[in-house]
Design a protein around this nucleic acid. Structure first.
Lengths: 138, 138
DNA sequence: GAATACTCTAGTAATTCTATAGGAATAATA
DNA sequence: TATTATTCCTATAGAATTACTAGAGTATTC
């Protein structure tokens, strides 16, 4: 299941994507519109800024805004920043690979094979879906 | 990411599926073969038995054994027992539906739509993969 | 310089995960 | 019947993660 962090992050991004002009939107505005704890959202938006998805402006009239076109933001990247690996087991992860502690040999592991399938499938959706598809109607 | 519980459960099932005769296998044998804590495995196998996947026999010469043909055990069901919902958000789950606390209206939620796609895709893999495919070579 | 809004570090409460402990119940066998 | 092997069941505990919260600090605008 998706953590709230990721869900909130996606909702915030789509909120920003829906703005007509790409003007800074304050955290408080997004948090109210999307029913998200303001302080929590604050930390989420900060991660997204550090990852290069958002820009920010301090002071009066400040806020967060998208740095790229919505078409150029695949969901996969956002997912990795907020949720972590897309793969279901670390030994199958492309970006966060780790050996499983209980498997002497990956190639003989039955779970391994199945999870490669699941990963490739999920990945193809998340990689091919951009924030643009995400906000368009129907 | 998959919990260890689910991973261990899948490994144990595939271990049982690989047995030539469908004779009871002791927990201790599986736990040693698959590097799983015996007590932990005990509780996992118990859940699988209660869910109707395994039969058990007590006393000397006892153990666990599969109740169905490997072809008739789709991974999806096992996943639901051990891991829980397949969907990434509860509001999109078929078997564990729950309203999201932060969404006044599901239909206007951008996350909702995407997660239906992800769910359908993952589901089609897990539903169409049986324990049989799982243990066959390559 | 006052008000506004993001930045950053820490901490904390709640929940879930990963087991572990210990004994009761059951079955086979000597 | 006594012994031994095995599952069954309940409870609990430590570790890790999640979901926030607090508050001081910094930059910007008016």
């Amino acid at each position: 299941m998706l953590s709230r962090k990721t869900k909130y992050g996606l909702k915030a991004l789509s909120y920003l994507a829906k703005q007509e002009l790409n003007r800074p939107v304050q955290i408080s505005v997004i948090s109210e519109a999307e029913n998200i704890s303001q302080k929590f959202l604050e930390s989420i938006l900060l991660s997204l800024r550090k990852a290069g998805y958002l820009g920010s402006k301090k002071g009066k009239g400040g806020g967060y805004y998208l740095l790229k076109e919505t078409r150029d933001i695949p969901i996969a990247g956002v997912y990795r920043i907020l949720e972590g690996p897309i793969a279901m087991v670390p030994c199958v992860s492309l970006n966060f690979y780790e050996k499983c502690h209980d498997c002497p040999d990956e190639h003989s592991c039955s779970v391994h094979k199945l999870m490669i399938q699941v990963r490739d499938n999920t990945l193809s959706i998340l990689e091919n879906t951009s924030l643009q598809d995400f906000i368009s109607e129907n």
